[in-house]
Simulated scan of single mutants.
Amino acid sequence: MIAAISIAPSGPASDPTVTPDAPGSYTNAVAAMVKVIRASGLPNETSAMFTSIEGEWDEVMAVVKAACDEAGRFGNRVSLVLKADIRQDAAGNEMQGKVDRVERAIVASSESN
């Protein structure tokens, strides 16, 4: 499966040792969450709005939970947006495979015009 997640803490930090973000910013919180995700060893990719994680259901959900727990250090409330592509026939490396197929389609359509 591939899960695309966006996590945002709100409210006062529950951990006094974290460096809180300025109002309207999530830089420190996101950096801490992405470190947790990267430490999992699962394939992942961070963009401006989401971080995608690829793996088996249980391992991906464990990483999502760990990232939410990390977010909870930066606020006493956590919002999670999750979108998942769950495929039984995927052999892995679909995060890159999906992008590669779209890029090939773009090239093919450009060549036919």
Score class of each variant (00 low, 15 high):
79 S>L: 09
10 S>L: 07
1 M>H: 08
38 R>N: 10
107 V>Y: 11
100 D>L: 13
59 E>K: 12
13 A>P: 15
102 V>M: 11
25 S>T: 14
64 V>F: 01
76 N>D: 14
46 T>W: 06
55 G>K: 06
29 A>K: 09
99 V>F: 12
62 A>N: 03
65 K>D: 02
32 A>M: 06
111 E>C: 00
57 W>G: 00
63 V>A: 01
109 S>G: 03
14 S>C: 10
84 A>K: 05
33 M>N: 09
111 E>K: 08
11 G>N: 06
23 P>C: 02
9 P>W: 02
13 A>I: 13
113 N>L: 12
91 A>P: 10
35 K>N: 12
71 A>N: 08
8 A>M: 08
24 G>W: 03
56 E>F: 07
71 A>C: 05
43 P>L: 06
7 I>H: 01
27 T>C: 08
36 V>S: 02
84 A>C: 06
101 R>L: 09
64 V>L: 00
57 W>V: 14
113 N>F: 13
53 I>T: 01
79 S>M: 06
37 I>A: 00
16 P>E: 08
104 R>P: 05
66 A>F: 09
77 R>A: 11
30 V>M: 07
93 N>D: 13
103 E>F: 15
68 C>Q: 07
100 D>E: 13
51 T>P: 01
2 I>Q: 01
68 C>N: 01
45 E>P: 08
2 I>H: 01
10 S>R: 11
99 V>H: 12
98 K>W: 06
23 P>T: 07
45 E>Q: 09
5 I>Q: 00
32 A>N: 07
69 D>H: 11
35 K>A: 14
38 R>Y: 07
111 E>H: 04
39 A>E: 06
15 D>N: 10
102 V>G: 02
92 G>Y: 05
95 M>V: 06
54 E>G: 11
23 P>E: 04
19 T>A: 11
76 N>K: 15
108 A>P: 09
43 P>A: 05
8 A>R: 13
45 E>C: 02
98 K>F: 03
70 E>A: 15
65 K>C: 00
74 F>D: 02
95 M>G: 05
19 T>V: 14
10 S>V: 11
61 M>W: 11
44 N>I: 11
9 P>G: 02
66 A>Y: 05
38 R>P: 02
66 A>M: 05
45 E>Y: 14
7 I>Y: 08
108 A>W: 08
37 I>R: 02
84 A>T: 15
